[in-house]
Structure formats: structure tokens, C-alpha cells
């Protein structure tokens, strides 16, 4: 049962991380916030994303034997990237919850 929890946590972290990584790209940030003229805080979002990926990897290691965990982790990254791409295509506004506005940089 604990394994399932770790895996769910890993999946959620991958999804969060991938959302942040995508929001760090200007074109996608604009998809999230088409109305205002803000820029993403690239460094902050990327660091957040990277940390989430590392934590997701650790969760995978908690759930499975290391050899299997690395496969699960890579496939979670793939799956979450695909999901984020689809959300960006259909309902980019959904990602606002994960990427709140304060992660933007003051427009200069």
C-alpha cells in the first residue's frame, strides 16, 4: 500500500515539475496568462521543476528496487510531459493553479 502512495506522489511531482518547466517557456506562460503582459521568472520555475523531478525520483526509489525505479521515473516524466502538452493545447488556464502569477518577473 505504501508503494502505491509513493508512486502517486512521484507522479504528482513529475506533473508539477513538468508544468513549471513548461511555464518557464515564454510562449507557454503567455498561454496561461494571455491577458496580462507578464514574463515568467525563468530561473525560479526551472529550479522548482528540477527539484520536483529529483524528489519524484526519490519517491520512485522508495517504492521499488532501484533498477525498476529508474524506469518508472523516466516513464513518469514522459507521461507527464505528454499530459502537460495536452493541457496546454486544450485548457492552458488549468495550469494557473500550479503556476500562480507571482512566479512571474516584474515586467521591465
Amino acid at each position: 500500500m505504501f508503494e502505491a502512495m509513493w508512486l502517486i506522489l512521484a507522479a504528482v511531482l513529475c506533473l508539477l515539475g513538468m508544468s513549471w518547466i513548461s511555464a518557464a517557456m515564454r510562449v507557454h506562460w503567455r498561454q496561461l496568462y494571455p491577458a496580462c503582459n507578464s514574463e515568467p521568472n525563468v530561473n525560479q520555475l526551472r529550479v522548482l521543476g528540477a527539484v520536483a523531478f529529483v524528489l519524484a525520483g526519490l519517491c520512485c526509489l522508495k517504492a521499488d528496487h532501484a533498477s525498476m525505479a529508474v524506469l518508472v521515473w523516466v516513464m513518469f516524466l514522459t507521461g507527464s510531459a505528454f499530459l502537460v502538452a495536452m493541457v496546454l493545447t486544450k485548457q492552458p488556464a488549468l495550469l494557473r493553479v500550479i503556476c500562480p502569477k507571482f512566479l512571474s518577473r516584474a515586467h521591465s
Binding site: D64, M68, L71, V72, M75, F76, T78, G79, F82
Partner: peptide, 17 residues
Amino acid sequence: HFEHWLLRWLYVLGGLL
């Protein structure tokens, strides 16, 4: 040959992609 249903489904996703 491993027992990991989640990873199996993730493989299906990879194959379909």
C-alpha cells in the same frame, strides 16, 4: 517479466506514443 502493473501501463503509453 517483472510484476509492476503501473510500469506496464506506462510502457503501453510509450508504445502508443
